[in-house]
């Protein structure tokens, strides 16, 4: 299987798009990331990641409607593609499997 590589930030952006559903565009994604992870994500970083994800065919985009607060400019709305979905699932499976294979005595992080 062709290995698909996603950076950590890309993964977060992709997840956020999936979380946001129909309303995923630059500003909303940036806001959501801040909300979800507590870290600030600059617009340019988000755009760059979206651009890369689109190049990797994990995102699909279309132009949305224009709003007044945007100075009458349209927003680009993103949705996760099938490939994006599969990739997210794969990542999740791998992670879960790994989590599951950690023996309890090696679980310092969870024993508060």
């Amino acid at each position: 299987m062709k290995r698909i590589y996603l950076g950590e930030f890309e993964e977060i952006v992709l997840l956020t798009v999936a979380v946001l559903g129909d309303g995923a565009y630059g500003v909303s994604i940036s806001d959501a990331i801040e909300e979800q992870t507590g870290r600030s994500a600059s617009l340019s970083a988000v755009h760059a990641a979206l651009h890369r994800l689109q190049e990797k065919s994990m995102l699909h985009s279309r132009m949305g409607e224009a709003t007044a607060e945007r100075g009458g400019r349209r927003k680009r709305l993103f949705t996760v593609t099938a490939l994006g979905n599969r990739t997210l699932n794969e990542i999740r499976t791998v992670r879960n499997r790994m989590w599951d294979s950690i023996s309890p005595q090696n679980f310092p992080a969870v024993s508060i």
Binding site: Y25, G26, V27, S30, L43, E69, R70, R73, R74, K75
Partner: peptide, 16 residues
């Protein structure tokens, strides 16, 4: 081809 969305996002963030 990127200008519209970027400017829109920047503007939106700015207004907020």
């Amino acid at each position: 081809h990127l200008l519209e969305e970027i400017r829109g996002d920047l503007e939106e963030r700015f207004q907020k």
